[in-house]
Design a protein around this nucleic acid. Structure first.
Lengths: 203, 203
DNA sequence: GTCTATATTACGATAGAC
DNA sequence: GTCTATCGTAATATAGAC
C-alpha cells in the first residue's frame, strides 16, 4: 500500500491537474495563474515542482506517446497476418486513447509553436507511419479493399479513432458506464466494426 | 468585373490572412503582432478594419457554419429516403469542408474560452444533432447496421470527416492534384466508401 | 488607411522570507 | 514546499499625427 498522506504535490500529481486545465482552456489559453488556481497553490510553488509550463506539456505528451508506441511492441502487433495485426493495433489504439484520455487528447491538439510541440508532432508522424505500413501490408495480402488508396484510408481511420477524445468521458467510480452512455468495450467494438466493415472486402 | 486595384484591406481580405495565421499558430497562440506581420500592416491598422481579434474569429466560424447549415437546405438533403439523404449530406460535408477548408478548420478547433467560441460550439452541436437525426431515420428504415448505436456511429463518422482538415491541402493553380496526392473527388469517394461500407448492411 | 507612440493589463518566471 | 512581492516582457487596445 502507498503512503496514506497526500497533501503536497509531486510533478506527477501536479501534471494530472495541469493536463485537465490544458484540455479545458487549450495549452496557449492556459496561464500559470490558471494552473495555480486549479492546483490550489501559488504560481511560484508550481515552479518548485517543474521548470515551467512547457515541462508539463512535455511530460503529458511523452506519456501518451510512450503508451502508443508500446502497442507496437506487444506480441499480437508483431505476429500473425498483417490484417490481424492491424485489427489488434486499431483496437489497442482505441483502448489506450480511452485509458490515457487526457494525455492523448493533449498530444492530438499540439500545434507546433514550441520545440516541445514540434518534437511531439514528429513522434506522432512516426507512429502514424508505422501503422500505415501495417495497413499497406494488409493491402498487399489482399485483405483490404483496393478501391481506396492506402495512405488516404490510414488518415481517415486515424481521424475516426482520434476523434474519440472529443466526446468520450470515462465511467464514474461505480463503473456502470460513462457520461455519454458508451462504455469502453462498446466503443472499441464500434470502431472495429465501422473501420473493418468498410476496410475489408465484402465477406 | 470587380475593381482591378487590390492594395488596401477590407475586413474580408484581412480575414483570409488572419485565418491562415490562426490555423498555423492556433487562435490563442496568435497575437495582433503576428497578424500585423502577416498582413504587412501595423497592429493599429488592423483595428481600423475590425474591432479586434475576436471579430476575425467570429467572421471565420460564421462563414463555416453558414456553409454547413446550407447543406441541410439543399434539395437532395430534403427529399428521398433517409439513407439517400444521409449519403448526400455526408458527401456534401466533405465537399464543403474542403472548399471552405481554413474556415471549417478554425470552427473545429474552437475551445470555448470566449463568448464567440461558446456560440460557435453551440451552433456546431445543433448541426451535429440535425445529421444524427438523419442517421437515426436511416436506422429506422433498416438501411444502417443495427450492431452499432446510432449516436456512437454519428460521432465516429463526424470524427472521420472532420479529421480531413488535419491533412487535406487544396490543389495548386494547375489543378493537377493537391499537395498530398489526393484530389477532392477522390477524398469524397473514399469517405463515402469507408463510411457506408461500414454503416450499411452487407449487400 | 496607415503609421508611431503609448496606455494598460496579463503573462512567465524569479527572489527571498517563512 | 509554500508563500508574497516583483521583475521584465509581451499582450490587447487606443490616441493622435499624417
Amino acid at each position: 500500500m502507498t503512503t496514506a498522506k497526500r497533501d503536497t504535490y509531486t510533478p506527477e500529481t501536479l501534471l494530472s491537474v495541469a493536463v485537465q486545465v490544458f484540455i479545458e482552456r487549450g495549452y496557449d489559453g492556459t496561464s500559470m495563474e490558471h494552473l495555480s488556481k486549479a492546483a490550489g497553490i501559488s504560481k511560484s510553488s508550481i515552479y518548485h515542482h517543474v521548470t515551467g509550463k512547457e515541462e508539463l506539456l512535455r511530460r503529458a505528451v511523452s506519456r501518451a506517446l510512450d503508451e502508443l508506441f508500446g502497442i507496437l511492441d506487444e506480441e499480437h502487433a508483431r505476429v500473425g497476418s498483417a490484417s490481424e495485426r492491424l485489427e489488434y493495433v486499431v483496437r489497442r489504439m482505441v483502448e489506450v486513447l480511452m485509458a490515457e484520455l487526457p494525455y492523448v487528447t493533449l498530444l492530438l491538439r499540439v500545434r507546433g509553436n514550441t520545440g516541445t510541440e514540434r518534437w511531439a508532432l514528429e513522434r506522432r508522424r512516426e507512429f502514424d507511419h508505422r501503422v500505415a505500413a501495417l495497413l499497406k501490408d494488409a493491402a498487399a495480402e489482399g485483405d483490404v479493399r483496393a478501391d481506396v488508396e492506402v495512405r488516404l484510408a490510414t488518415r481517415l481511420v486515424f481521424g475516426m479513432i482520434n476523434s474519440i477524445v472529443e466526446w468520450y468521458r470515462p465511467a464514474g467510480p461505480d463503473g456502470r458506464g460513462d457520461a455519454n452512455g458508451s462504455g469502453e468495450r462498446e466503443v472499441v467494438e464500434a470502431v472495429a466494426r465501422l473501420v473493418f466493415g468498410g476496410l475489408r472486402k465484402a465477406s
